[in-house]
């Protein structure tokens, strides 16, 4: 019999005015959860999926953590940057960053894009977060801050499982960043669901790469549920493709390797078999985009 009762009115909420203060609160409260603009966590609290006792509301730290910087060949995005703010930055309109543009267009609704943050999307760490595969495909890293200082972790070592982050309780993700690929790179992002907007993807796929004279110089492929229940890189497919000439045969072989690498599952939205077929089609289309 269910005994534990969750009491909304008893959540203790901290509202720090600075990053320094926020980190101190996190350090002092092992059981505190970070909440930014609440598009992910609040519905889960209301549904009773999670029952936090303490929340650290960092939405007041925008002056410190909302930014997109482009300096010394690195793009840095503050954790509290909203999706709308990201979409307004000039870099996403470039060919090599088309994947960002594609993902933002399919991201929630205008209202959600105005609230949801880049950091929140990454830290939600679930298969429905479409920015994770995009960042993975750019080899992104995250900056974790705590009272002890800062450290850098690569994104694929940070998001380690469904709703699971590899970080210490007193750490906060403050930034995601990646080295800019040269402008010979192209990219694309696909997302497919049962309707055209406001959907949880059936599948998604980000492809970033450089193809010169039909030869694959570099390629990074990330999708939902490659192995586990989160977005991951399809390393085997990448290795297979690197250095090869992009012709029909190579693409067909890459699709086969990709299909074997994927470990998808059924749910009420679609079967694993369908997801696999569609992902293979999207891979082909993505490679064709790169090859053009």
């Amino acid at each position: 019999m269910e005994q534990a009762v969750f009491n909304l009115s008893q959540i203790e909420v901290f509202q720090p005015a600075s990053l320094k203060e926020a980190l101190k609160i996190l350090n002092d409260n092992r059981d505190a959860e970070i909440i930014a603009n609440a598009t992910d966590l609040w519905p889960r609290i209301m549904n009773g999926e999670v029952k936090p006792k303490k929340l650290v509301d960092i939405s007041g730290l925008r002056s410190e953590l909302s930014y997109v910087k482009r300096e010394k060949g690195v793009i840095r995005i503050g954790a509290l940057t909203t999706i709308s703010e990201l979409s307004e930055h000039q870099f996403v309109s470039e060919k090599r960053y088309r994947a960002f543009n594609d993902a933002i267009k399919l991201f929630g609704s205008p209202q959600i894009r105005n609230r949801a943050t880049v950091g929140g999307n990454i830290c939600a760490a679930s298969s429905s977060e479409d920015l994770i595969p995009v960042f993975l495909a750019y080899d992104a890293k995250v900056k974790l801050a705590s009272v002890d200082g800062e450290r850098i972790v690569s994104l694929d070592k940070f998001v380690v499982g469904k709703r699971e982050l590899s970080k210490r309780h007193n750490e906060m993700m403050t930034e995601v960043f990646f080295e800019e690929p040269d402008d010979g790179y192209s990219s694309v992002f696909y997302k497919i669901g049962r309707r055209n907007t406001l959907i949880i993807n059936l599948v998604n796929l980000a492809v970033v790469g450089k193809v010169q004279d039909k030869r694959v110089v570099d390629i990074r492929i990330a999708a939902n549920r490659v192995k586990g229940k989160i977005p991951e890189r399809a390393r085997k497919t990448e290795e297979f493709l690197k250095g090869r000439t992009l012709d029909e045969e190579t693409i067909a072989d890459a699709q086969r390797v990709f299909g074997e690498e994927l470990s998808l599952s059924d749910d009420f939205r679609a079967s694993a078999e369908y997801r696999k077929q569609v992902l293979k089609v999207l891979l082909k289309r993505g490679l064709n985009v790169l090859g053009v």
């Binding site: 549904n47 309707r195 055209n196 907007t197 406001l198 009420f268």
Partner: peptide
């Protein structure tokens, strides 16, 4: 025709919310 389905699995409603139960938007 295209998307709506309140899924029951062994008598339980799987998607009793508008996150997982899809109705058409203006884009559909």
């Amino acid at each position: 025709a295209m998307m709506e389905e309140l899924v029951h699995k062994n008598g339980y409603v799987v998607n009793p919310n508008l996150k997982d139960y899809y109705i058409p938007t203006s884009l559909d």
